[in-house]
C-alpha cells in the first residue's frame, strides 16, 4: 500500500517538474559538477539517469543511494534545453522519501533532527578536512539550530536586559 503511494507521488512529481519533456540529450550530465565533486561519473546517479529511470520505471528505485548524490546546485536546471526542473524535483523527491522513512542515505541535525544533507556529501566533506575548512559547525547542526544556538549564546552573554518601556 505504502509502496504504491510513493510511486504515485513520484509520478506526480515527475509531471510537476516537467521531467517527461526530457529529450535525453545529456546536457545536464555534461554540466553537472558532481563529476568534479566526487571525482567520478556514473550514469545511474547523473541527472539524466535519474530522470530517465524515474520516468520510465519509477517503481524500481524508491530506495537507491543514487538519488542522494545530487548537490541541488541548479546547473543542470539552468542549462536544460527542455526546461526540466531537476533541482526542484530532487528536493521534493528527497522530502517525499524522508516522509516515507528513507533515512539511511541522509544526515540529520543532531539538535533538532531535521534533514541536513545527503550522507554521501557529508562523508565526502569529513573525509577531506582541507576542503571542508571554513564550513565549521555547519557540518554538525542545521542552519536553523545554528542560528538559535547563536541567539541562546547571546542571551547568555548579556543576561541583563534594559526593561522595555511599555506605553
Amino acid at each position: 500500500m505504502e509502496h504504491s503511494d510513493i510511486t504515485t507521488e513520484i509520478k506526480h512529481q515527475v509531471l510537476d517538474h516537467n521531467l517527461n519533456v526530457c529529450l535525453e540529450c545529456g546536457k545536464c550530465s555534461a554540466v553537472c559538477p558532481m563529476l568534479d565533486f566526487y571525482g567520478e561519473y556514473a550514469y545511474q546517479r547523473s541527472p539524466r539517469g535519474v530522470v530517465e529511470r524515474l520516468s520510465l520505471a519509477p517503481d524500481d528505485i524508491d530506495d537507491e543511494e543514487a538519488l542522494w548524490y545530487c548537490l541541488t546546485c541548479q546547473e543542470c536546471t539552468f542549462f536544460c534545453p527542455s526546461g526540466v526542473d531537476f533541482q526542484g524535483f530532487m528536493m521534493d523527491l528527497r522530502d517525499l522519501l524522508l516522509r516515507h522513512g528513507h533515512r539511511k542515505y541522509a544526515v540529520f541535525c543532531p539538535v533538532c533532527g531535521s534533514y541536513l544533507m545527503p550522507k554521501k556529501e557529508f562523508e565526502y566533506l569529513q573525509k577531506d578536512p582541507e576542503r571542508a575548512k571554513g564550513l565549521g559547525d555547519l557540518l554538525a547542526v542545521c542552519p536553523r539550530c545554528k542560528k538559535s544556538s547563536y541567539a541562546e549564546l547571546l542571551h547568555r552573554m548579556a543576561p541583563v536586559h534594559k526593561k522595555m518601556k511599555h506605553i
Binding site: C25, G26, A30, C32, L35, Y41, R48, P81
Partner: peptide, 27 residues
Amino acid sequence: ARPGKVTVNEENQNPVIHYEDTVNREF
C-alpha cells in the same frame, strides 16, 4: 549528445567539448 560546455586548452588553443554520449552513457 548535447554537449554541456566547450573549454579551451590554453597551450594550443584547441577547444575541448565536454559531453555525455547518451548511447553508451560515457562522459
